[in-house]
Write a protein that binds this DNA or RNA. Sequence first.
DNA 1: AATATATACATAATTTTCTTATGTATAAGA
DNA 2: TCTTATACATAAGAAAATTATGTATATATT
Lengths: 110, 110
Amino acid sequence: MSNSKLYKGSLTTIILKLLNEHDKMYGYEITQKVKELTKGELKITEGALYPALHKLEAEGLLDVEVAKVDNRLRKYYKLTETGTKETVNKLEELAEYIKTMQALVNPKLA
Amino acid sequence: MSNSKLYKGSLTTIILKLLNEHDKMYGYEITQKVKELTKGELKITEGALYPALHKLEAEGLLDVEVAKVDNRLRKYYKLTETGTKETVNKLEELAEYIKTMQALVNPKLA
DNA sequence: AATATATACATAATTTTCTTATGTATAAGA
DNA sequence: TCTTATACATAAGAAAATTATGTATATATT
């Protein structure tokens, strides 16, 4: 995912946020979009992505819809209602995380 | 550590930064300082902290010095020269992480 | 005096999340 | 023809945390 360990735990937030913006996406598309948005800084590996998608689906945050494009399989994921609510929570947690870390790292500004 | 999974992977950064500011600290003191600086938002658990300190020591980033205060044991940790350099790296990684996540979560501002 | 809480360390079992490696299959480009 | 891109998947192992214990002393509460 990256040389930095800080990304551990943020994959779910990333997936949910992208699906919140793009309505429906398939796995490979997510990896490409992340690479594009971060200018190559962050690469989502398949070994992390697919299990994460399956888990989110199992938890009822994502719905899946299979399609065949150019004779190749695609699994389109989209947020459920619960998933949309959870996206809001995850984004709040991210904002809170950043605030907390800044308080630790830059206590003068707190 | 917190209800949010985002803190996973940031403990080392937190420890190094606190030691960079406070010269020498012991484990329990670190847990209290974090609680104080984050107004209770973040609680470092012992099961995470002590193994992390031992690892940083083993890697040569921290030096340890045992003291007895009020008939109780304290292990004071301080940054080695290597540890000071690594602190700079970790803080750069944190800044980069925040930048990257903001690009993902708020692409309009990127 | 007894009990609970705070201080101070530690480790073991388990869980979560990720990396790395591997596997299948089709399409497109060199 | 061979490599790269597209598109999915899982298994083995590593890393970092949680949760549960354990030891021990000091202080505060009942």
